[in-house]
């Protein structure tokens, strides 16, 4: 609804430039194209509509893990209260010089309505992670069951190639543990103990972070992504890592 209102207020650059093949591609994925906007509302979070859809479209076909943990972030709801960040740090013993998740801030000076947006970022637990490919000792790996990108900290040599390989700046070196640390969707601290949500998702007062199982059609995340009303995108789709953190508005 809100999105609709904002769309009406922004300048629509027209859909006539969009090829019919692309349209069909979008429709096939169950996504509707409402317009192309430059004012900073629709497309500016990612680098291009086509690439975004090409990426999330592939996800609509197949979810290789069970459960396929994923997060849908309602970016316009974020108010940067940073309770997620604090909950994460407390739950996972993240030192003050590092972070597993953070909030970025973008100013949209040309926008007519809201001129500010907070963008939560974390490990995207990619289906094709580059961090795990480049790690020389398999200290970081993708869990074959739930798809979480994990660390085996005793094997980490601290070459930081994974930090270079990550398109999401999701990793940092933890000096106390002498290993790279990263978001694990709170596997050790919560999920493995039967909790349903990550610490950040639970702490969020604004319903920004929706955490769930993308392979379950009854799950909130699944339903949030498989719909035609609202646009869903990922960050840095061109890096080709098939991320599992999705973004939407409204």
């Amino acid at each position: 609804m809100i999105l609709k209102k904002e769309l009406d207020m922004s300048r629509n650059e027209g859909l006539e430039n969009l090829g019919s093949e692309e349209r069909r591609h979008f429709l096939k994925m169950g996504l509707v194209v409402t317009g192309l906007f430059a004012g900073g509302t629709l497309l500016s979070l990612s680098s291009g509509a086509r690439r975004v859809f090409a990426s999330s479209g592939e996800f609509a076909e197949k979810y290789p893990y069970k459960p396929h943990y994923s997060m849908l972030i309602h970016v316009d709801r974020c108010i940067d209260c940073e309770r997620c960040k604090k909950a994460c740090a407390k739950t996972n013993h993240v030192p003050d010089y590092g972070y597993r998740t953070t909030i970025l801030e973008r100013d949209v000076s040309g926008a007519l309505a809201g001129k500010r947006e907070f963008v939560p970022v974390l490990c995207n637990h990619c289906n094709l992670p580059q961090c795990t490919r480049v790690c020389p000792t398999r200290a970081t790996y993708k869990d074959p069951v739930n798809g979480i990108v994990q660390m085996n900290k005793s094997k980490c040599i601290g070459c930081l190639t994974c930090q270079m390989g990550c398109p999401y700046n999701a990793r940092y070196f933890n000096e106390e543990q002498m290993a790279v640390d990263k978001c694990s969707f709170c596997w050790e601290s919560r999920l493995s103990k039967g909790e349903a949500l990550t610490a950040c998702a639970e702490a969020c007062p604004a319903g920004v972070r929706i955490f769930g199982d993308l392979s379950d059609p009854n799950d909130k995340v699944y339903r949030g992504i498989h719909q035609i009303e609202k646009t869903v995108w990922v960050l840095r789709p061109e890096a080709g890592t098939k991320p599992n953190i999705f973004y939407t508005r409204g």
């Binding site: 480049v134 790690c135 020389p136 000792t137 980490c156 040599i157 070459c159 002498m178």
Partner: peptide
């Protein structure tokens, strides 16, 4: 390398064949 001792060991016992650095 931050932990060179581990490098000597795990380069040998836990190699990653897709890793260029390995």
């Amino acid at each position: 390398i931050k932990v060179p001792i581990r490098m000597m060991l795990y380069n040998i016992i836990s190699p990653n064949l897709t890793s260029n650095i390995w």
